[in-house]
């Protein structure tokens, strides 16, 4: 009976399945096969013996991270930043997408969209250099303005408290264009008949947004958030490293797992130890995504990923 179903489905959805094939192959090739490299996290790697021949050393590679005394701090930073990024970088694009959708003028929509999308193409190195020229104490634009209006300059690169806000804003600035295009596509796909019906029934703009647009966007939001949750233990290295650099004064509020590992291992360049850190992040990420998916399932079975 079941088997019959399988074959029937295979025939019925053959086009869709065929479309899926390249993606599946891609993931097998670049995600599943290299996964065997995880063994490096438990090995004392040397070139002569290679990945599988190198001697095992148990959990030695994990020690440096756990012994450092910073493991808890950097893990907490990573998670908190990522939660902030997930909230801000989904909320802002949704708002922008709804606003853009409600704007009638097409040219205006296009201009705004393009302007929002531009930062997405800037490399973090460039963004870091721009930030340095904005925030520098001696010649930065911000402090130049403050001095200009007769106020005391602020030493941004010496004050950890400013940085969570700065990093969230910069991340949003770079991500909002991309996200809003995705949500705009989702909104455009909502059946217009619903809007027409609502209009006939006398719903105003806010009611339309609240009762039609947002409920229809929810599945997309949930998928995106679930996918992002899986990466909640991975710090965006480009963002953190290029914005903060090696400024130790800011580490307490900006050090994430990725930058911590990078700075610790630049001199030793031990592949086993960096693999161990990556493995640690993957395991935690895996557990989180299972938990998040379970929570979504509890709430609404159809909206869970699996």
């Amino acid at each position: 009976m079941n088997r019959n179903n399988f074959w029937r489905n295979l025939v019925r959805y053959h086009t869709l399945l065929l479309m899926l094939l390249p993606g599946v192959l891609f993931f097998i090739l670049v995600a599943y096969i290299p996964m065997a490299g995880i063994v490096l996290a438990f090995k004392k790697y040397n070139y002569n013996d290679g990945i599988f021949g190198s001697p095992w050393n148990g959990f030695d590679n994990f020690k440096f991270f756990l012994q450092s005394g910073d493991a808890w701090d950097v893990t907490r930073n990573t998670v908190l930043y990522n939660i902030a990024f997930i909230i801000v970088n989904n909320l802002l694009p949704i708002i922008m997408a709804i606003l853009l959708f409600e704007v009638a003028k097409k040219w205006f929509r296009k201009v705004i969209q393009t302007m929002m999308f531009l930062p997405y193409f800037l490399s973090w190195v460039v963004v870091g250099a721009i930030a340095y020229n904005l925030f520098n104490y001696d010649f930065g634009l911000v402090n130049g303005l403050l001095r200009g209006v007769g106020m005391e300059p602020i030493d941004i690169y010496n004050t950890p408290a400013y940085w969570p806000t700065i990093l969230v804003i910069v991340s949003a600035w770079k991500a909002v264009g991309y996200g809003s295009i995705m949500y705009l596509a989702a909104i455009t796909g909502i059946d217009t008949e619903m809007y027409e019906a609502a209009e006939i029934d006398g719903a105003n703009v806010f009611q339309r947004i609240w009762k039609i647009t947002i409920p229809n966007l929810l599945p997309t939001v949930i998928i995106l958030v679930l996918l992002a949750v899986g990466n909640v233990f991975r710090g965006d290295f480009g963002l953190f490293y290029n914005m903060v650099g090696n400024n130790g004064l800011l580490f307490e509020s900006t050090n994430v797992i990725d930058t911590f590992v990078f700075r610790a291992l630049t001199l030793t360049s031990d592949i086993g130890m960096s693999s161990a850190a990556g493995f640690y992040q993957s395991i935690l990420g895996f557990v989180t995504i299972l938990a998040a998916n379970y929570a979504v399932r509890k709430y609404d079975k159809d909206r869970a990923l699996f």
Partner: peptide, 28 residues
């Protein structure tokens, strides 16, 4: 569609890491 979009995003994000492990694989 959105899933594919996000997946492609995830792919491009992952590929940096993976190419590294891919290459080191050939070392052996």
């Amino acid at each position: 569609l959105t899933l594919l979009l996000t997946l492609s995003m995830a792919i491009s994000a992952c590929s940096g890491n993976n190419s590294k492990s891919n290459q080191s694989e050939s070392t052996g």
